[in-house]
Design a protein around this nucleic acid. Structure first.
Lengths: 341, 341
DNA sequence: CCCCTTGATGTCAACGCTTTCATTACTATT
DNA sequence: AATAGTAATGAAAGCGTTGACATCAAGGGG
């Protein structure tokens, strides 16, 4: 049986309260006593029960993280930031995978609530009005990352300016001489990101006086296979292929598209330029190295955690509940070729 | 404030014990009462406190997972299996990232212990004798995945037959006409996997009467950059390059090696064949699709969980504490070229 | 010399559950 | 009709902490 606070107290000849104090408010216990208690703890390999502590103190120093899918390639990067920041604030992270299901996401709030988490980070799925009831009653701060909210409960969100990012991609492509620019956009039932990026694409086109052409646009759900199939459809839609550049809504889809192109005897960037979105670690590993939009995943994770840490235990002021847009960055590598002279 | 069991009890006109029973032993409560209680729960959006439950019942329905690094590419696959199996057994998973540090790994046991986890899954680092003290006193079952133990405390492990797997790779290469086969092996301070795979390589060579040649072997710590640099060194070691095939200890290193080769004007598989190890999702995404050894990550995760579930609350018999070798599989794709006629 | 601080410690009631044990009201057995 | 089971429920004691409050000795100001 593990040693409890009581065992330590007895061994050190003090009360449990004192032991608790050396752990939590060290400056109000006598140095000498402290030493004795510390020694006893050491000797008995005492490890305080986080469970009991959570129950008693009504805080658990734990943050809940709800992700749609653990296998989404960006997860690791985001988690890294969250974990690092949590560490620094003496918090742990409890992970919950909603498996892209709205019901499970909803459940996530209750379940994490059952663990007394001090805050919840919700990721990459649009928050709609049907989240309101749960949001109302969780009673702990919730922040959004890589997404935003359409619910009535005000929620802070940390993300990039999607529209602007994709606009930048188009602008970049245009300065490289491209005019026939296609897109594999993202589309998923509970996702707004896809629309935003598409909007950025159209806006870019418009800004440079290029006409929007349905023929050049296809959709996918962000994963590799979606990219592959979307590219396939794109190829079929225009037998006399004359697109010179392609934007995508995710690096994974970019990979899929490239694979598909290769399978059809087309080369990147010689025959067509491709730009990704996310800047996953693998973007720099493949050949050709992928030109892409870097999302500051780690920073977003850190920002979310520190917001949460600041918010715990008090009602955040309305001015703090903003839509925080972190800077993205276009990373130029090898998958885009400059056209013309 | 969230509703507690007491609130529900009052609302349903029963005692808290009864409410607890409808949750935990539904068959010993009257259907009618049950209905009333259920209704009350529903009405009040009652969510039992996992914390309180854990404290009281001394089990938390939670498994602890210690991984060396969340950004290791295989993590997601392994986690998927673990999460799925946990789900099915009504368990949650608490994640702990040791950041490749032995101290932090050691801490992990205590910390997870503080959360009353019912079992711990330890991953991909060799367990040595210095783990014995903690292992002795955690008092809950521990299983190893993707690694094994050299400690005196007997621990079950779930992994593949590394030696055999790499032997198979060599055999495969030989049947494809390769003789000058190099290797980028894995090496890390607390890792035995690397040695094992190297041993498989040497064994394979020996079996086919090929002489082992230091010149053709380099080491790395499994990541992309390690692979790149190792390849670099390989290239430098033999200016008149005549290696026709390369085994690697990880897909990531294979990617790195391929990248390096490309940067030096060499093509895979035309100029040299490469085989990876792991079969990460990205192995099929890149060009050329990577021929590699598939580790059954998900199955390993599932096996570990079900072992744990079976072991919780009882002393597992020595016969159960085995070194479980799960079947690997050589996945043939496009990165190996058949030599000669 | 007494009273009031102050600092260090102890006491004890929570926290929200589970779980024994006791109680009650039936039903079956003799 | 008396006794023993049995099924459904309640009362209450923890589980390992924390935190409000009480206690106590030592020191300082009047």
């Amino acid at each position: 049986m593990r040693a409890t606070i009581r065992d330590v107290a007895k061994a050190a000849g003090v009360s449990t309260a004192t032991v608790s104090r050396v752990l939590n408010k060290p400056d109000m216990v006598d140095p000498e006593t402290m030493e004795r208690v510390r020694a006893a703890m050491e000797r008995m390999a005492y490890q305080p029960s986080a469970i009991a502590r959570g129950l008693s103190a009504k805080r658990s120093d734990t943050l809940g993280l709800i992700v749609p899918g653990i296998t989404d390639f960006f997860f690791n990067e985001l988690y890294k930031g969250i974990d690092r920041a949590s560490q620094q604030n003496g918090m742990r992270v409890l992970l919950y995978d909603s498996e892209h299901s709205r019901e499970r996401a909803l459940d996530g709030f209750s379940i994490l609530g059952g663990y007394q988490v001090s805050g919840i980070i919700f990721t990459s799925k649009l928050v709609t009005e049907d989240y309101d009831p749960i949001l109302q009653r969780v009673g702990i701060p919730v922040v959004l990352t890589l997404t935003q909210s359409e619910a009535r409960t005000p929620l802070p969100s940390f993300r990039i300016d999607e529209v602007r990012a994709m606009f930048d991609v188009v602008a970049f492509l245009v300065t490289r001489g491209h005019q026939r620019i296609g897109m594999i956009a993202g589309r998923q039932w509970d996702d707004k990101t896809g629309e935003l990026r598409l909007e950025g694409y159209r806006k870019g086109l418009r800004h440079f006086g290029i006409e929007y052409n349905e023929e050049l646009v296809e959709y996918g759900q962000y994963r590799f296979d979606d990219g592959y199939q979307a590219m396939q459809r794109l190829l079929e839609k225009q037998p006399n292929f004359h697109m010179t550049a392609l934007c995508t809504a995710s690096d994974e889809m970019a990979l899929g598209a490239i694979r598909c192109l290769n399978d059809n005897g087309l080369h990147v960037p010689e025959d067509i330029s491709v730009v990704g979105f996310d800047d996953l670690p693998l973007a720099r590993m493949i050949t050709p190295r992928l030109t892409t939009v870097a999302q500051p995943f780690a920073e977003i994770g850190e920002a979310a955690v520190s917001w949460l840490v600041r918010a715990v235990g008090r009602e955040p002021s309305p001015s703090e509940i903003g839509d925080y847009l972190l800077p993205h960055r276009l990373v130029e590598r090898e998958s885009v070729r400059a056209l013309g002279s």
